[in-house]
Design a protein around this nucleic acid. Structure first.
Lengths: 343, 343
DNA sequence: CTGAAAGCGCTTACAG
DNA sequence: CTGAAAGCGCTTACAG
């Protein structure tokens, strides 16, 4: 047992046949007498033979590995994405290799270059800091797909629609001072599509005020400080860029005896576990990550296999608002009395 | 650009030198005239040469890849573990490959066998359904470490200590009817160490009642139903096996106008993001996942490199209770009045 | 139906 | 300091 790895040569010698016979008996790529096939399988079991990974890769030029570049695993959206990607890749008989590439462009590009050596059959770039063009160039001949650069990509998530659903709902409820907590991580180099949509919709109603917006890191704490700021600015509803920030808003409200949704409506984004876990459960926006992941994987595999057959029919994914208990009409404005308490 | 991959032969031919020279100029494993080294580097850049992964692996017998077997990515503890493992592996110049192996033993073992072909320099088995022995056998000659089988492993997490801290604190606060929500996923084949510790400590006080315990799936919803059951059974404090379940308890309490911590104390486990996100913030138990991950990686690398030098000095990790706002004295027993309301 | 040989793209003794 | 050759462990034309 402590001896060297057993190779195809050992098996061939053991049986007194050639290694081509062993190889073919395993692959089934040519007719081998049933008798020999059986002998080979038996010998393999006895010797504990297993084809060597690297040697097979050298011939097939394929590792069955897909590299997924992520910056970190801190936000729930990334985690869900990874989970779904892994599921779909597995279905296609690929394994997912997670590459933590950090947040700066340089190290991200270096990472891509480093792993574009045949280690992966394909690379999925989810890094917001690296453009699709630069990533593809760094990958050289390795198929690479950049995640969700909707402007030109084949998968388009209509964030604006998700935001519109929320805003129209809040307008309907009578809210005029709707605060917005924006973020940078959905930006992909351009402007954050959620913020853009929010601003445009507020403007159309003549309600946009820069004081009602703020930029957040996306973490709980930033939601807490944003809540304090926005409520002081007069917001009766707060639309946060993600559920974690929204949870911060809710927590701050509780701590300051501001009732949700009676005194303040709160809406999140991403519809993560957190949205269901907080109290009151959070109205949020479902992005259908499974679908995004499914199509992303499909596109990457097409690129790997060089399928030009399927013409690039862009997939549009439309988010959907999920109503829970954190939103209510803006009517009862005994709210201003409360506000005094916290100052 | 559309042509075949450029190989070391192309570089050698291009420069009119032998491929050994090119190879050595890159590896630095033998003296090469500075002039030639420079020429080689220049040519490499011009031709866009990059050593082929599989060919290098064939020689080095090392891929730089570590396979981490996880059942899924649903609970926060796993996610944090993965994140920390990735960090430590990266520091040691390894990449992490995530293998989702599901929940049954058979498919897990098959997965291990399949990937024990030289694809990974080492394997980390976090699957609770697969014993350390079976996993190691399935891995054959590939180094494999089974995560946190404390009984014999070199890394021992003293769950009992974490539980003791919580229980002693609750006893101090005057709680006698302490409900416990147990789970199966920390079990690793044996009994859940958290439940065992809870039961023993309650017994020592003469307070143990089976009616005050229940088994949960670990999801939020199971926390909600457990809360209802345990409060009906008279619990004045609930100690949940993980934060998600505890969040369910809190949510149920809010929905039923039971005040936390005044009417009901709640304690979670794992000290995840969720513990900070809910209101009131949740008293929980920190497991120091970073430390666990650090030592796990260290052990695996030792096994890979065959370091027998470092004698197996077992590392003990002691969890620590983190106090937040979900716990308070059991005194005010106007609680029973409330209970009526929900029946 | 089977075997001997070439080749995948590197690294590394072996010779000079 | 450098080159020609063997070898890593397979697969796959090529011959029979």
């Amino acid at each position: 047992m402590r001896d060297k790895k057993v190779t195809i040569n050992d098996v061939a010698r053991y049986l007194g046949v050639s290694k081509s016979t062993v190889s073919h008996a395993l692959s089934g790529k040519r007719q081998i007498s049933a008798e020999v096939v059986e002998k080979v399988h038996k010998a393999i079991r006895e010797l504990g033979y297993q084809p060597n990974f690297a040697a097979q890769v050298m011939n097939s030029h394929s590792t069955g590995l897909i590299g997924v570049l992520v910056c970190d695993m801190r936000n729930a959206h990334t985690i869900r994405l990874i989970d779904e990607l892994a599921k779909h890749l597995k279905e296609a008989n690929y394994s997912m290799t997670l590459c933590m590439a950090g947040h700066d462009e340089q190290s991200g590009l270096e990472m891509i270059r480093k792993v574009s050596n045949g280690m992966f059959d394909g690379i999925l770039n989810t890094l917001p800091q690296i453009s699709a063009e630069k990533a593809a160039e760094a990958a050289g001949k390795t198929p690479l797909l950049t995640y969700l650069r909707h402007k030109k990509g084949a998968i388009y998530v209509d964030y604006a629609s998700g935001v519109r659903q929320v805003m129209e709902y809040l307008f309907q409820l009578g809210h005029k001072k709707i605060g917005h907590i924006a973020t940078r991580f959905r930006q992909f180099g351009e402007e954050d599509p959620c913020f853009t949509a929010y601003r445009d919709l507020m403007r159309k109603q003549g309600l946009f005020q820069p004081e009602l917006t703020c930029l957040s890191s996306g973490e709980l704490e930033s939601g807490i400080s944003a809540a304090e700021y926005l409520v002081r600015a007069g917001a009766t509803a707060i639309f946060a860029c993600n559920d974690e920030t929204a949870a911060g808003v809710i927590q701050w409200a509780h701590a300051n005896r501001i009732r949700i949704p009676d005194d303040l409506s709160v809406v999140g984004f991403d519809n993560t576990q957190l949205a269901k876990a907080v109290y009151p459960p959070l109205t949020s926006v479902e992005l259908f990550v499974e679908k995004i992941a499914e199509h992303t994987v499909k596109r990457l595999l097409e690129q790997i296999h060089g399928d030009k057959t399927t013409e690039i029919s862009p997939v549009i994914i439309t988010p959907r608002m999920v109503l829970r208990d954190s939103t209510a009409p803006a009517s009862k404005q005994h709210f201003n009395k409360k506000e005094k308490r916290i100052s």
